[in-house]
Design a protein around this nucleic acid. Structure first.
Lengths: 144, 144
DNA sequence: ATTCAAGAGACTCTTTTTGTCCGATTTAAA
DNA sequence: TTTAAATCGGACAAAAAGAGTCTCTTGAAT
């Protein structure tokens, strides 16, 4: 019951892109250095984000990545699901059409509600929200 | 991002106990048969539930398990955390006292909210709630 | 005594996670 | 037009987690 490093790195990397001025790009190498994420791992992650249509990639010299949409139009859930696959807690309805749990499936319903709890939090926050919150924290006088 | 089989089995097993008349016990062997859970795996799980103080065990012949408290006083979160360990999405505050995320930690805050979303759902439901819901489903005329 | 059950721990097998490495491809610039 | 810089793709690998199994020990009832 955790969010993977890969997904965390993905969000962090996208936040970097969200900070660029419009149309600008950043390279994996830059992002991996500023965010302290293993470079080749981050490369892999951004490939998936590209396939999911969340980032645009420019290949070749002077290449890099940019957000495919505005930061205010990309939710954290989208980023995470692009990397981890869909978030699904309850398995019985998906694994098999007919639930295996003896005597009906109250448990599936509960798991579904728990899952919705996560999703609500993650769809309710966009990349723009995140960097805005981050800037607010940085503006405080005391260190973190 | 899943609930483990072990935790699922744990809740299912506890629900069985919750259905017993007061003071009665059930054996691992019975529960594993009625719920179709591998016996030795379930044994292991119930050991942990015992250590967590959620079930009482009676050893020896005519032994078995019973809930340590009333079913209405045991939340699903307690059962799951007894088996999986505490549910913690955000890692930076726990792993290391000083957050590694560059420029403050908006992400940790978000992950914490997501985590609370799960926990709210799971603390809001007790074993008694589950079996009541289950009975309601079973009472319906059509098959599941 | 014997038998029935839980307790404890070592062990195994598989899948997922967290990466690394390398060659291919694309593009800008010298 | 070569060369250097960057992504793309896939294979590979080590470590951790997940899902069980097996065996021996301990405790209680008959």
């Amino acid at each position: 019951m955790q969010i993977t490093r890969a997904a965390e790195y993905g969000v962090l990397g996208m936040m970097r892109l969200a900070r660029l001025r419009d149309g600008a790009t950043a390279m994996i190498d830059e992002i991996s250095r500023t965010e302290k994420i293993p470079k080749s791992f981050l490369g892999k992650i951004f490939q998936e984000l590209g396939r999911a249509g969340l980032v645009r990639s420019i290949r070749g010299a002077r290449g890099g990545f940019a957000l495919a949409r505005d930061a205010s139009a990309i939710t954290v859930l989208e980023v995470i699901e692009a990397i981890e696959g869909k978030i699904v807690f309850q398995r019985c309805r998906l694994d098999k059409p007919d639930c295996e749990h003896v005597g009906g499936c109250a448990l599936c319903g509960l798991f579904e509600r728990a899952q919705d709890g996560v999703k609500d939090a993650l769809t309710g926050t966009t990349l723009r929200d995140l960097i805005r919150q981050q800037d607010r924290v940085d503006a405080l006088p005391r260190a973190h």
